[in-house]
């Protein structure tokens, strides 16, 4: 398996000094291409900080982060934006859609920043929305849709540009049971289509869906196991 993500001895310290908080304490982690990983931990365990590192949304205080073997931990702001655009599809707990834009426009957004032409953009965005079952909702704005539908729009946005990594931060945290099932099914399908999926969650029920489970606590990795209960089915 080829290395996709490699974190080496990463620390993240907030408020350096007497009251410093070590959100990540010498964490090292490798994730290969095509893996399905769940990172589980209690609130305050450092899992969100880890997710921000993995998603190039934040820079480590020390240590290195290699993506495709390239050091991305000390890139400029614009270079990191470019990496996020090309390499990572985000699925957030709060959906993070832009309220003034329609579903289609929201999905098109990363393609605009990549410089994809109007026609191609429309094609990719519609295809992505169709694949999450929202072909009929393209012109709806986020506030005209249910939570589950909004999260599906967010997933469509994450996959429209076909990034190698899908990074999902508590993707079902704001959803009811039915929607949760729906979203998990879609995420699993995306894994089966060949994407690397990383889910960050505090919910063991969600984590148990993944093939590999990493447990994090107090900014350190406590365990890293292959899920014995994993069922390779959708």
């Amino acid at each position: 398996m080829k290395k996709l993500v490699e974190i080496k001895d990463v620390c993240k310290i907030y408020n350096p000094g007497e009251n410093e908080v070590r959100a990540l304490n010498h964490v090292s982690l490798t994730i290969g291409e095509g893996e399905f990983v769940a990172i589980i931990g209690q609130s305050g365990s450092g899992k969100s900080t880890l997710m921000n590192m993995l998603g190039c949304l934040d820079t480590p205080t020390s240590g290195k982060y290699f993506l495709h073997g390239q050091d991305v931990s000390h890139m400029t702001d614009d270079e990191q934006s470019d990496i996020r655009n090309r390499e990572i599809g985000f699925i957030f707990q709060g959906f993070n859609l832009i309220p003034s834009l329609t579903a289609l426009e929201n999905v098109e957004l990363p393609l605009i920043y990549r410089g994809v032409g109007k026609k191609e953009r429309d094609r990719l965005a519609s295809a992505a929305l169709k694949s999450v079952g929202l072909a009929k909702r393209m012109t709806h704005k986020p506030n005209e849709m249910s939570g589950g539908q909004q999260q599906r729009v967010a997933i469509a946005r994450a996959i429209a540009q076909a990034p190698p990594i899908l990074l999902a931060d508590e993707p079902t945290g704001n959803l009811d049971t039915a929607s949760t099932k729906e979203i998990i099914t879609i995420i699993k399908r995306l894994y089966h289509e060949g994407r690397t999926v990383i889910i960050i969650t505090h919910d063991p029920g969600i984590a148990s869906q993944a093939k590999r489970i990493i447990t994090i606590s107090d900014g350190m990795i406590k365990s890293d196991i292959i899920n014995p209960e994993y069922k390779d089915e959708i």
Binding site: D77, D78, D82, R84, N96, L97, P110, Y113, R114, R157
Partner: peptide
């Protein structure tokens, strides 16, 4: 601010 955060997280550059 949130919208700006969203745009940046999906790849908007400072210039954009």
């Amino acid at each position: 601010t949130r919208e700006i955060g969203i745009r940046k997280s999906i790849g908007a550059s400072t210039g954009a």
